[in-house]
Design a protein around this nucleic acid. Structure first.
Lengths: 366, 366
DNA sequence: AGGAACGTTGACAGCGCTACCAGCAACGAC
DNA sequence: GTCGTTGCTGGTAGCGCTGTCAACGTTCCT
């Protein structure tokens, strides 16, 4: 059953040093700063380590050096596939580096975030990646006092703690609404779930764009604190229709909701985009192959994670970025679901991706 | 910018002990085994620790005790939302415990898995969670020699390394095909992507069920090593149709593929389930709200992760499970997409979830 | 009463590594 | 030739905690 207790081979740095004929400290240097060694000793230590199969004891290293090689990552959700893309980027960037990722889930609670932050900081992480810009005052103070580089991800805003990488959800939402305006839609509903700070900012963007056009009405907005799902999209859309039967478009705070709206439309035999246009947010993979294909806002999630981790590692190693705040922007991916209303109400069902014009915009950060 | 270097408050166990008026070792015991202390000292240490805001130094603890409180988790993918459910369960179970999760991604490579395993084991984890039962001989040997409890997740099979929790993908696939037979379908195609060992076993189950009925033909099977996606589902379905235009059902190795098949059917104006029945695998959330609602095999992924981590933690603390191999089974969730063929070819578009009969089956492990 | 058994506490000695500083050789500048 | 400089190497002294074992007081048994 594999529970047998084997006396650990126990190859220490001292053994490697002995085999290589150098002092332990020289062997130690080989692993931290090989350039500092003469070529002769370097190769000797290297082959000795390989021969013995030496693996450094991270706990001893951390204790002696007073720092760890752990990057702490705080994200609000493991379920939301938006974060799995970001995480994949982070893990990819950390791979091959000496740093390991310590992940924790705040469950969209800034109090939980504060608690986790305290825990993380006590272990002296090499760096920290935190989600968003809405921390408690206490968290903010801890972050500012922290003795390591920090990257805030997912959005950009004023007053970064250290580094920041993301895009403006506000601007992205405005762009989505602008696109619907362009296509001739006027009574545009908003459907949102979870309503975390980033979704809230999307709502703010929607409201401002609608107000600018003199078209905003509170009754066009349907939101809930419930976690998002496809089914919920259908339910919220049902609510919206009951309240405002004459809407001609729906801007969904994410793609799951958009898919739910699409299915609900089909269930009700409402033509998309003939009778109702749909725009989602995030541009998940399925948006391009739905029928009709679904318009969405593409956000560079994988890249965000990867860049964040890369920037962080560079900063840890003393190479601070020229530009600490990075706006990754977004793109309006125009597809069939948001086309201008047509006289015939039959949905367009030509090949997927036929309409796939892209509008790239950096978010203007104010 | 938060880079200011603060001299760490540096509250050590010694400080706590001093304030409490006990020896450091007694204070240490308070954190590891409070029951061993007298009530008086226990409360004294407790309040001293709280007053000073003491947080133990994990590196020192690990070094001195020769073991860590880290649970290593090896999964093949971060993208696949099947794993995000499992992970959520694992993280949820670890929360509140003293153990922290160290996650690594094998990218579906057993060689990469072997490499990561070596890395993990060198740090003497408290426990290990690995995916599946297909390890290299070398990995297997390392696992058997490992000095910690181990749980294999996602599937069950003969000869567990230690503990095992999952279900039979083979039996689940057979059940899916049996369901299609019941509904009167005969020419059932198989669509699979990625073809990792578990998908392969689903294919094996499909093949055996079809052979049992004398209906198997190699040309009914379309697979690819490409990672799965909704779009890919449509493409594979297109291939299948080109090869075998007269199929009456498709069993998809996962739900993303099934959704792709649904969209492609709609694009081609093929009625589901009128002309073609669809069955997916995993029962992701959207399956219940698609139009038509999509039949799938429900697998208990969150529960799998949570139970695995709970079992592991119990085993670490000496409470080994009565039953080291746990079959979580699966359920055939019958929905509209797989109903018997009907004379009229119009898809059923009544309310979602109208048909939602469930068949629960434990997988028979041989 | 004597002794064993138990519960509780503390002293000591590291765990494996690295920070710090000293030492040494080789080299070039004056 | 002397001095400083640079490049490389090693010795010493911990980092903060826990394993081990001994010692103590108390209780219970014979």
């Amino acid at each position: 059953m594999g529970r047998k207790r084997t006396k650990s081979g126990k190859i220490r740095l001292a053994e490697v040093a002995e085999l290589a004929g150098v002092s332990p400290i020289t062997a130690s240097r080989f692993f931290r700063n090989p350039e500092a060694l003469s070529v002769a000793k370097r190769t000797r230590v290297e082959s000795a380590a390989k021969e013995l199969g030496y693996v450094p004891n991270l706990a001893a290293r951390a204790l002696a050096s007073q720092r760890t090689e752990v990057i702490g990552v705080l994200i609000p959700s493991l379920t939301n596939n938006v974060f799995s893309d970001v995480l994949r980027g982070i893990y990819d960037a950390s791979e091959g580096s000496r740093y390991s990722i310590q992940l924790s889930n705040t469950r969209y609670s800034i109090l939980q975030e504060e608690k986790l932050l305290r825990l993380f900081l006590a272990q002296k992480p090499a760096g920290l990646i935190v989600t968003g810009i809405d921390q408690t005052a206490e968290s903010r103070a801890m972050l500012e006092a922290a003795d390591c580089p920090i990257v805030q991800i997912m959005e950009i805003g004023p007053d970064p703690v250290d580094m920041m990488i993301g895009f403006s959800h506000y601007d992205a939402a405005r762009a989505a609404v602008a696109h619907l305006f362009e296509q001739g839609h006027r009574r545009i509903g908003f459907v949102g779930a979870r309503m975390d700070p980033r979704v809230q900012r999307r709502l703010d963007g929607y409201v401002s764009a609608m107000e600018d056009a003199g078209l905003f009405e509170q009754r066009l907005v349907v939101t809930t604190a419930t976690p998002t799902s496809v089914t919920l999209g259908g339910a919220l859309f049902t609510d919206l229709l009951a309240r405002e039967p004459d809407i001609d478009a729906v801007f969904c705070a994410n793609d799951d909701l958009a898919l739910g709206v699409l299915f609900e439309s089909r269930r009700r035999e409402i033509a998309v985009p003939g009778q109702i246009a749909i725009v989602g947010f995030n541009d998940l993979e399925f948006m391009a192959s739905a029928v009709p294909t679904l318009t969405s806002i593409r956000t560079n999630r994988y890249e965000m994670g990867k860049t964040a981790a890369t920037m962080l590692i560079n900063a840890i190693e003393g190479r601070r970025p020229e530009q600490p705040v990075l706006d990754l922007g977004f793109k309006v991916i125009e597809r069939q679901s948001s086309l201008a209303r047509r006289s015939d109400s039959r949905p367009v069902v030509s090949g997927a991706g036929a309409v796939n014009k892209m509008i790239a915009l950096p978010s203007s950060h104010d």
